[in-house]
Design a protein around this nucleic acid. Structure first.
Ligand code: MN
Ligand code: MN
Ligand code: ZN
Ligand code: ZN
Lengths: 146, 146
DNA sequence: ACCAAGACGAGAGTCGTTATCATCTCTCGC
DNA sequence: GCGAGAGATGATAACGACTCTCGTCTTGGT
């Protein structure tokens, strides 16, 4: 599933604007992320790129992801299983969070305005300038509950 | 800071009710957690117990924490730095989440009804029976922002 | 074409966590 | 109380995600 046809171009342009060079690993990781809008681990990205004939080192995957996260082009997602996952982050600040089924492991994205509003309220009340937040909801999906 | 003078007794009773035996490691970990209501890593618990003369293996600390989490007596907290933390979970379902300062690393707990309500709504809309959720707010505290 | 800075890949290393296994201890029936 | 057996513990090895190091290759500018 493609987030937006514009994302990879936007990401590559942002890398260039940040004074970084164009390199094979960066192009490959960005291209792969553009084909999956939700939750890919470094290993999955590594395997995916190599399955398409690319030759990327796992160290480069981590390095590229670090850079993309620092530039806010990618969001890091932690689902609690000890593996960090990554997904494209749209420039307009629009993003989603995740529900995980404890039974089958299914991951489903969601967006909720009331939730975002509540988080803004909390940060303000505590005197924090919020610049990110992570939310994971855990439970049983309707299939696993049956 | 002590969560509730009743927590350690409640936890030990719950372990007994679950058909588990009383052992030195379990008592030591429960006692340590009762003295800290927020965010202790396995290593911190291990060091803390040993500093008080106890002799607990790190493997036992992890095992006890696993058991306590399974019985919902302890909540696992992931702040995104690759280290799992643990804190007592009161039986009435009352709990808190965390704000982390990217500058100084300060961690502050908070509770928010609107947030909890929004999460219930999200889970319901997606057809999930929510049984847990994790929320981490990240930003700059007023000290680091100055 | 040349060069310096930067990007890359392979492999070693780190560290939190988990698995193994021999030893110890709690509990229960006697 | 005593003994037996199930369960708990701790030292250590193993594991896996991630990071560091370093030599080589590529990029972008002159
Ligand atoms: Mn959000
Ligand atoms: Mn909550
Ligand atoms: Zn399910
Ligand atoms: Zn701070």
């Amino acid at each position: 599933m493609i987030v937006s046809t514009a994302w990879p171009d936007h990401a590559l342009a942002a890398l260039r604007d940040a004074g970084l060079r164009s390199g094979g690993a960066r192009r490959a990781v960005v291209a792969h992320l553009a084909r999956h809008d939700c939750c890919r681990s470094a290993q999955e990205i590594h395997d995916g790129v190599r399955a398409e004939g690319g030759t990327v080192g796992i160290a480069s995957v981590y390095r590229v992801l670090d850079t993309l996260v620092a530039l806010r082009l990618v969001q890091r997602v932690e689902l609690g299983d000890g593996v960090a996952r990554f997904e494209p982050s749209t420039s307009d600040g629009h993003h989603h969070h995740h529900v995980v089924c404890d039974g089958c492991g299914k991951v489903e994205p969601f967006s909720d305005n009331a939730l975002e509003h509540a988080l803004e309220g909390v940060a303000g009340r505590l005197g924090f300038a919020m610049d990110a937040h992570e939310v994971v909801v855990r439970g049983a999906c309707d299939t696993c509950r049956a």
